[in-house]
């Protein structure tokens, strides 16, 4: 098992796509700092009355969450699809005929790699944004200690999406298809729920990966009513419910991957 783990780790770090994805993650940290600067400038140009009536939105880390989730998801997807696309999967399963071991090893290195990546992005984005914004915006008024669980939840949600990508990759064997599903889930899902009737809109909104961090960290729903007083989709899960949801993603994804790789021939 440790042999397979170290082999998968070597595979992950020895291809350029991983370097690019992690490189983009580093750029996002700089992007977050710049975005914070723009936001605080815009905020301070608003009238005192407008500022009193609005919150100014969440932290900058939250606004880049989906992009970090997508990066993590692609890392997961490519872990399997690059092997299917090149045919390397045949060698992989020939040298480790007990295929679930390969799945566990891939899941472990993807989880570890994206956990480090996402934590770095989230914590450093927070640090830079906090330095830029200070206490000039409500979102950054709570200290690091209060923000910690939420930052950890943001990073954790990236790991969940990465493992979801891994499962989709094993199941579909095609990077294009798997990444398309991720994009729908991460970016388009939010728009679609707006058109769903209550209470389904709240349920589906709560199940979306982008809604997980708030619910995992126990942050109450931000906006319940829209500008016209009409209800907008908001989070409804309790903290244990959110953990169960996150675990459900991982279990369903790895379970589907397990069935896919053990039942299918490797051609």
């Amino acid at each position: 098992m440790t042999g397979v783990l170290s082999a998968e780790w070597l595979k992950l770090r020895s291809v350029r796509s991983t370097h690019y994805l992690f490189g983009v993650a580093v750029l996002l940290i700089g992007g977050a700092a710049l975005l914070s600067l723009a936001r605080v400038t815009a905020w301070e140009n608003l009238s005192a009355q407008t500022r009193a009536e609005n919150s100014g939105g969440g932290t900058t880390e939250e606004t880049i969450l989906q992009f970090v989730q997508l990066l993590g998801g692609i890392v997961g997807v490519l872990t399997f699809t690059s092997e299917y696309a090149t045919g390397l999967i045949r060698s992989t399963f020939a040298v480790v005929p007990r295929r679930p071991i390969v799945l566990v090893a891939k899941a472990a290195v993807v989880a570890a790699g994206t956990a480090v990546m996402a934590s770095a992005v989230m914590f450093m984005s927070y640090a830079f944004s906090e330095a830029v914004v200070g206490d000039r915006m409500p979102a950054y008024e709570p200290g690091f200690g209060e923000q910690l669980p939420h930052l950890a939840a943001l990073a954790g949600s990236v790991v969940v999406v990465a493992l979801l990508g891994l499962g989709l990759g094993a199941l579909l064997r095609s990077a294009t298809g798997a990444i398309a599903i991720l994009v729908v889930l991460l970016f388009i899902g939010q728009m679609v729920v707006m058109f769903l009737p209550e209470p389904f809109s709240h349920w589906i909104y709560s199940a979306l990966p982008v809604s997980l961090p708030d619910q995992l960290a126990g942050v109450p729903p931000r906006i319940v009513d829209g500008p016209a007083g009409d209800p907008v989709p908001h989070t409804v899960l309790s903290v244990p419910g959110a953990w169960a949801m996150a675990a459900g993603y991982v279990v369903a994804s790895l379970g589907a991957a397990y069935l896919a790789i053990t039942r299918r021939d490797v051609r």
Partner: peptide, 17 residues
């Protein structure tokens, strides 16, 4: 084989398993 991986890393990954 993965075209982006070096020959050495390709073989090392297989060997480690």
């Amino acid at each position: 084989v993965h075209p982006g991986r070096s020959a050495l890393n390709h073989l090392r990954a297989l060997a480690r398993t």
